[in-house]
Design a protein around this nucleic acid. Structure first.
Lengths: 140, 140
DNA sequence: CCTCGTTGCTTGAGTGCATCAAGGATCATT
DNA sequence: AATGATCCTTGATGCACTCAAGCAACGAGG
């Protein structure tokens, strides 16, 4: 279990609740991944492969080094969840995509990660809209 | 930079904003720690030492193995931010606490991690209360 | 007292994430 | 062709995390 990010001493209740939310969210994500014997990073990458794409595109989208993606993809490939094929347009590049088993596992992961759905589901449609508006404003 | 936790395909806008919030929060936490040359885990442990406590207490509070805490504390100790002293009540145990330098760094970390403060600050007091109430309800 | 099970922490080994430096292959341009 | 940029991989390193094993000290019962 990754250590929580905070709380530093919180000065307002809203901050404290924000921290709780992030902590519970992150733990739920990790737990859902663990149910499928995936690391959070693996679940993350798997979830971004609705369409085939290059390694570099993944790295940029996820804000990390390309070599990091290489390693994660290598492991996902070893698990049979992902396949790399040469890009016909550019022989330097390799396109990554989910295998059928990868699709299956990704679906089960989405089903297992119920936190966001459940949390939002506790609110009425009006409340959901309010929450969305408030968070958008808070995010600036 | 740690890979983001999500999004799996989001079915509602509220879920998507929730994910954004968590992502931005986590990245801000990591960036604030990096400003002080700390890892997120180190910043987290440092932040929990307002009072001296045993290694086991830390591990339990943070939901991880005691040996994990040992390692993180060893590194913090090497940085001079933390000190371990024998517990006079129980010679098996060791009490960890921040050094003066640790206090200083922790303060600067709290100052550097502006995200939650800033985000909440964008809302009026009324809105902050609404947000708190909504998130509490969502968290169940 | 003195075992004996328990507790508190550390050590060691193993895995994975993350970043950086370096390198090979290919591309695109001149 | 030659050159420089781009795409990706490899290798090395550090940290987080977990598990198994171990040591030292506690506490309770004989």
């Amino acid at each position: 279990m990754a250590l929580p990010n905070g709380p530093v001493t919180t000065s307002s209740e809203a901050e404290a609740v924000l921290f709780d939310l992030v902590d519970v969210y992150d733990r739920a994500y990790e737990a859902a991944a663990a149910e499928l014997s995936l690391s959070p990073a693996q679940a993350c990458v798997l979830g971004r492969l609705d369409e085939r794409r290059g390694m570099g595109a993944l790295a940029e989208e996820l804000g990390c080094d390309a070599s990091n993606i290489t390693q994660i993809v290598v492991r996902l490939e070893a698990l049979g969840l992902v396949a790399r094929e040469p890009d016909p347009r550019d022989r330097r590049a390799r396109l990554v995509g989910r295998t059928p088993r990868g699709d299956e596992v990704n679906k089960r992961f989405a089903a297992a990660f119920t936190f966001a759905r459940t949390a939002v589901g506790r609110l009425s449609p009006d409340e959901q809209d309010q929450l969305t508006a408030l968070l958008r404003k808070a995010l600036g």
